[in-house]
Amino acid sequence: MALAIALIYSKTDWFSGARQRVSDFTMPLYWFTDIPGQVGRWSGDRFASKQDLQEENTALRTEVLVLKRKLQQMASLTAENTRLRQLLNSADTIEDRVLVAELIGVSPDPMRHKVMINRGSADGVYIGQPVVDAFGLVGQVVEVGRHTGRVLLITDSSHALPVQVNRNGIRLVAEGQGDLFELQLRFVSSTTDIQEGDLLVTSGLGQRFPPGYPVALVESVSHDPGKPFATVTARPMAELNRNRHVLLVFDRHVVSDADDSPAASPGG
């Protein structure tokens, strides 16, 4: 009987509805196991020494200054980009709206790269929603409960996403390997211009992830004459094993813009 259930589970999607529903009941357990970590962080906040706080404050001030300088350039660049896009008659890329979520649990199975977050359908989270952190793309939402959600990381062995080499715009597919520090690029022909240190960004082709978010850095490129494709591995930019807070990106409008832009642009 267990075997039958296992087969039905893995080969069909009959259980998918039940799976969504039980996540509301199982999540309190994950909340519970997160309590020691929360107590640890709380006491860390409470009992930090004055000197540490002052040092942290100085570091943050410096960082804010650096980021503000970047933002100044960003404003003019965005304006220029919008003007150029208007010249080209293409849809404006609107800034994405984000929601901060906190991690409350990780999948107990080391092969399964999923994390639980404290936002659910009550906060407007939807299935397929992209998740990023301060450094790059983290993954996408695959299950939504009322107040919790489950995020599939880009390094999970069942995950693949369309990416682009930032330097020259070559489109590729990055596949998770079940290793938190490795992505593999599929079907890279030996003549492709790709080298170590290239930045891979989301291309937005799958209509799932918004374009332009950093995904990974190319770590090694090896050409084996016996194989039809080069073996290229990349290291994810996002700190998948240590981030505490992630950002949920709301980008529905990007898809809808792309859908109705041909009709809208001649009129506008």
Binding site: M1, A2, I5, S23, T26, L29, S107, P108
Partner: peptide
Amino acid sequence: AWFVGMFQDVVEDGVWGGHALALA
């Protein structure tokens, strides 16, 4: 054992029936 395993599968979000079979 079967029920305990099933419960573990559901909570862990593994393939349902895996732990149930093994524990039984």
